[in-house]
Design a protein around this nucleic acid. Structure first.
Length: 892
RNA sequence: GCACGGGUAGCUCAGUGGUAGAGCGGCUGCUUUACACGCAGUUGGUCAGGGGUUCGAAUCCCUUCCCGUGUACCA
């Protein structure tokens, strides 16, 4: 017997295999392989990122898919990498600068040096998450790790920009954008989160110019922008104000007459029905302003302070301070009618968490390409979304799609590949419109490489939105050879939170630039929440550290535990208990393997003779093969994991192994012993292969230590094809198999009843009891001895004419009547009440069943087999009742 | 407002028309020679509420309530 520790210790095993897999090139994808391709590109985590539970869920799923595909004989590319994450990374380095003494900003450092600093930071800290993914066991082709600012990738980004610009889909223009006053950059609509907030609604009195006694009441949440009002609008159908149209009111701050105009947009029922029009600071007002040709007065600085020297009380104040202050000013002037609490939604920057400002600014925009193709691909099933309902969200977004603001006022990222001719630069920077015509005219230069005579040009200052590089990820990460083999990719596994940011845009880019869809399936993972249902976040401190979980439960334990609770449609509520179960399961597996190792080699006996329990477990193993295949085929990872769990723990360990232990004892018949060892090996060999995608390390370890690797030329499990389920039970016909399963099932059920009986008589631990079966089916010596073993009895007597002493505990089992002779310890009363209790239960079943069968329409309308089933059930219950009644009578 | 997802045992979740399930937890026992990260037994449910369809509903339909998500508008 080999000495092995009693408990499984994952840490070293996992490290060992991660190293060996890499050394043996197990993860490497060969574009020249003749095998059919399977590919996934990783959703590139931010270089600033550290592994969180969402990554674990996401990447475990990808790893399962990749490993399973390898077992199925496919050439697998799982392409890893990271995203430069413009804002996040720049902010990270700026934070470091701010910590210096004296604190510095990026402007102190200058653009060129600052970008160098970010690169240096990236080189030093950027790889953390990649290392963490390796610890999870991810089988990415690490030799192909990509970064969204790799030279080749950057060229692809510039190429795409250039093409879209020349096509007229990219243009520059002065537009209302979402402005982040902290980060000082424009944002896309997707980066703004509408957040319910407690605001105030101020009702302000605007005096009519030609009637000092008449007032127009205007409700606003933003009195600090009154100085920028250029009109007041009312609905043209509002009778209250019909006579005021064309007149003017006096703006209450920075007083000056402004017109009263009529616009359909104003809702009669809201507030006072009069709306102040402030084109510089509100999207809708801007449009109204355009419709009426109104002036634009901007009273806010880029960083959200009031810029209005004409109103010295407010000038220079922060926008929120100015809001309060302007209310005070209005109240002092007697112009504040009222101030009330008001719940509204405020657009908040996803990045800096502050309310954004609608701001008129010069930005670059993209009119999306291939929108129709993208829409069709999902609606016609060419790309399959799982869960399917996300297709609706996707379609809805595409239907209301707006041009994408792609420029950011950042330094870290892909710089816009547009250069202005030096002598015209100042003028061109203000040009209201810039398009392909300007390039043709030689006023600007657009291209992948800088112009040949850079001294004559000035490059655009802005960088591109990070997602403008991410949307090329499925193909810009591959060279031609790789693309020929692996594009389009097979599966994309990602969170539904980036369906607009990333998934939809990749689909459009795929059609526009790579000749077709970027992937065939999208699996949207659930969002991992804490037990209170809250999103995991740093600020709440409710996010467990995956590395800590790996250290305590093993990567396999973490993977397995998480997969068991990962549902397909909804969120996952994370419970560490589940991960502990994963670890416990690994331990169970390890010990079952250890048990096998203690038995020594099986002989090569060519004809093991199987008994019912062997056939039974092999047939269940065969079922497991198809359960795993089916559930993985449907991306039902929890079902797959659950099937693996219950097969191994319940069917194999609790039933089968316990039933065959005597076969392995000293003195057992060698042929019997051998049959059992063969069966155990078959089960373990197949099982480890089936489990490997989910728990790769322990599966690989046991595969080797059980000697199965040696049977496959010493190859690691992950390079071994899935064993063939069809060879299991070959040579046995269906009827033999089903007979064996009936017997085995009867054995296990009878053993349960026997244990129940023992327990009820407080004999659970007594192994000296005898069991007697009055058989109702064939119970051969093999079954009888296994029953004794399972039930913890000395022996089982099978005796058709057994006459039990009065009051002997008894139970009805599939084998027939089972007795637990107590040899003098009989408690007649206890047995009577026990039987009476059971009769009660049976009576209820019978009346339920009789009621059902007594219902004429049930018998007429239900399918014949359902009726038959019910009749059989009733007959069984009645038979049981009869026998129990007889027992009861014999006791009195 | 609109759309989507969910509400099943104390907890986390399976269960798509035919006898309500698993794991954990609770409670009783057990150092049973692979495993106390374990074994055996046991407890525990108006399947959110109401209505309907059906011989039969956790499951299908309608409706209400609650939780979550997305999206639009918000002066």
């Amino acid at each position: 017997m080999r000495e092995l520790p009693k408990a499984y210790e994952p840490t070293q095993v996992e490290e060992k295999w991660q190293k060996r897999w890499q050394e043996e090139g197990c993860f490497h994808a060969d574009p020249h392989s003749a095998k059919p391709a399977y590919s996934i590109v990783i959703p590139p985590p931010n270089v600033t990122g550290v592994l969180h539970m969402g990554h674990v869920l996401n990447n475990t799923i990808q790893d399962i898919l990749a490993r399973r595909a390898r077992q199925e004989g496919r050439e697998v590319l799982w392409l890893p990498g990271t995203d430069h994450a413009g804002i996040a990374t720049q902010a990270r380095v700026e934070k470091e600068l701010a910590k210096e003494t004296p604190p510095r900003t990026r402007f102190d450092v200058g653009r060129e040096d600052f970008v160098k600093m970010v690169w240096a930071w990236k080189e030093e800290h950027g790889g953390i998450i990649i290392k963490q993914l390796k610890k999870l066991g991810c089988s990415c082709d690490w030799e192909r790790e990509r970064f969204t600012m790799d030279p080749g990738y950057a060229a692809a980004v510039a190429r795409v920009f250039t093409d879209l610009f020349r096509e007229g889909l990219i243009y520059r223009g002065l537009r209302m954008v979402n402005w982040d006053p902290v980060l000082l950059t424009a944002l896309s609509d997707e980066e703004v989160i509408m957040t319910p907030s407690k605001s105030k609604l101020y009702t302000v009195r605007y005096r009519l110019e030609d009637d000092p006694n008449r007032w127009l009441l205007v409700a606003t949440t933003r009195p600090e922008t009154i100085m920028a009002d250029v009109a007041v609008a009312v609905n043209p159908n509002d009778p209250r104000y019909a006579d005021l149209l064309g007149k003017k009111v006096i703006r209450p701050l920075c007083e000056t007459p402004i017109p009263i105009i009529a616009d359909e947009h104003v809702e009669i029922g809201f507030g006072t029905g009069a709306l102040k029009i402030t084109p510089a600071h509100d999207r809708v007002d801007f449009e109204v302003g355009v419709r009426f040709g109104l002036k634009i007065i901007d009273v806010l600085t880029a960083d959200g302070h009031i810029n209005c020297p004409d109103c010295p009380e407010l000038h220079g104040l922060d926008r929120f301070a100015a809001r309060d202050k302007s209310a005070v000013l209005l109240r002092e002037k007697g112009l504040l009618e009222k101030e009330e609490a008001y719940d509204n939604n405020v657009g908040v920057s996803q990045r800096s968490d502050v309310p954004i400002e609608p701001r008129l600014s010069m930005q670059w925009f993209l009119r999306y390409p291939c929108v129709q193709e993208a829409k069709d691909a999902v609606s016609n099933g060419d790309i399959v979304f799982r869960p399917a309902h996300w297709a609706k969200t996707y379609a809805h977004w595409l239907d209301g799609i707006q041009d994408w603001c792609i420029s950011r006022q950042l330094w870290w990222g892909h710089r816009i590949p547009v250069w202005y001719r030096k002598e015209q630069a100042a003028e061109l920077k203000e040009a209201p419109k810039l398009d392909a015509e300007d390039e043709k005219a030689g006023r600007i230069y657009v291209g992948v490489n800088p112009p040949d005579d850079p001294e004559n040009w000035v490059q655009d200052e802005d960088a591109l939105d990070t997602w403008f590089s991410s949307w090329l990820w499925p193909f810009a990460t591959m060279d031609d050879e790789c693309r020929a083999k692996f594009y389009p990719t097979s599966d994309l596994v990602t969170g539904p939170d980036i369906i607009f940011f990333w998934v939809s845009r990749m689909i459009m880019a795929g059609f526009r630039f790579a000749g077709g869809k970027p992937f065939s399936n999208v699996f949207f993972t659930s969002i991992v929440r804490d037990l209170l249902g809250r999103k995991m976040s740093k600020s709440l401190g409710n996010s467990p550290d995956p590395l800590d979980l790996i250290a305590r439960y093993g990567a396999d334990g973490l993977r397995f535990g998480l997969m068991r609770i990962a549902p397909t449609g909804t969120d996952v509520k994370f419970d560490e208990k589940q991960i502990e179960e994963g670890k416990n399961f690994a331990n169970k597996l390890y010990n079952a393997a250890r048990f096998r190792m203690m038995q020594g080699e099986a002989s090569t006996d060519p004809a093991p003779h199987f008994s019912a329990v062997h056939i039974d477990i092999l047939s269940k193993l065969k079922e497991l093969h198809s359960q795993v295949a089916d559930s993985l085929g449907k991306y039902e990872f929890n079902a797959c994991t659950q099937a693996l769990y219950s097969f191994f723990w319940n069917e194999y360990c609790s039933l089968f192994l316990e039933a065959v232990k005597n076969d392995l004892r000293d003195g057992a018949v060698p042929a019997v012993r051998n049959a059992t060892l063969h069966t155990i090996d078959t089960v373990l060999r197949h099982y480890l292969a089936l489990l490997a995608p989910i728990m790769p390390h322990i599966a690989e370890e046991l595969w080797e230590s059980l000697g199965y690797a040696a049977r496959h030329d010493g190859k690691p499990l992950m390079l071994t094809e899935l064993p063939d389920a069809d060879v299991l039970l070959s040579g046995l016909d269906e009827s033999e198999i089903s007979r064996a399963r009936v017997s085995a099932n009867a054995l296990y059920e009878t053993a349960n009843r026997a244990r129940n009986l023992k327990s009820e008589y407080n004999l659970a631990t007594n192994k000296n009891v005898r069991l007697v079966v009055k058989p109702a089916m064939p119970v051969d010596a093999d079954l009888a001895s296994r029953l004794a073993l399972l039930a913890g009895a000395k022996e089982t007597l099978v005796q058709a004419d057994y006459s039990a002493p009065r009051g002997t505990p008894t139970a009805l089992t599939p084998f027939g009547e089972l007795f637990l002779p107590l040899e003098g310890l009989v408690d007649v009363e206890a047995e009577k009440s026990r039987i009476a209790k059971e009769l009660d239960k049976i009576a209820k079943e019978i009346s339920r069943s009789e009621a059902k069968l007594g219902n004429a329409s049930f018998v007429q309308r239900a399918p014949a087999e359902v009726v038959q089933q019910e009749q059989d059930r009733l007959r069984d219950w009645k038979e049981k009742r009869q026998r129990l009644t007889a027992m009861l009578t014999s006791l009195s």
